[in-house]
């Protein structure tokens, strides 16, 4: 009985951190969006200025940053879908399974989306079958 209670408390705490993860990733992506708009606005300054900015973003540090943005988007989106699915289909009782399912989906998406980016970062070209 006591163990069940403590398990539930642990579970609540995990839920809190997942919620926090969605907030923090969301704030990060929001900040990135504003930067992205400013950078693309450099098109107005002409080809030379824009391409100079793009050269800067081709550096490994910025490519790692891009990878972080992709991971943040995947985490935020998958968890958002999880929350909407729980609300829409009244899945509160399946909460545990939903969390593991979404963690798996996010892991697969990060692997699928991150691999081409990592290859590009390492200067390798992705060859599609």
């Amino acid at each position: 009985m006591l163990r069940a209670v403590s398990e539930r408390v642990e579970w609540r705490r995990l839920g809190f951190w997942v919620w926090m993860l969605r907030r923090v990733s969301g704030l990060g992506i929001a900040f990135y969006l504003l930067l992205h708009i400013v950078v693309i606005h450099q098109l107005v300054a002409g080809r030379a200025t824009f391409d100079q900015a793009m050269d800067l973003f081709a550096s490994p540090a910025f490519r790692l940053g891009e990878l972080a943005v992709v991971v943040a988007c995947i985490v935020h989106a998958v968890d958002g879908v999880r929350v909407m699915a729980i609300e829409a289909f009244d899945l509160a009782r399946a909460e545990r399974r939903m969390l593991w399912l979404s963690a798996t989906v996010a892991g697969v998406a990060v692997a699928l989306g991150g691999t081409p980016l990592l290859l590009h970062l390492l200067g390798l070209r992705l060859v599609l079958p």
């Binding site: 080809r47 824009f50 391409d51 793009m54 590009h120 070209r125 992705l126 599609l128």
Partner: peptide, 10 residues
Amino acid sequence: PPRDIDFDNV
């Protein structure tokens, strides 16, 4: 696939 974005591209 990931590519280097430039002026013409966009």
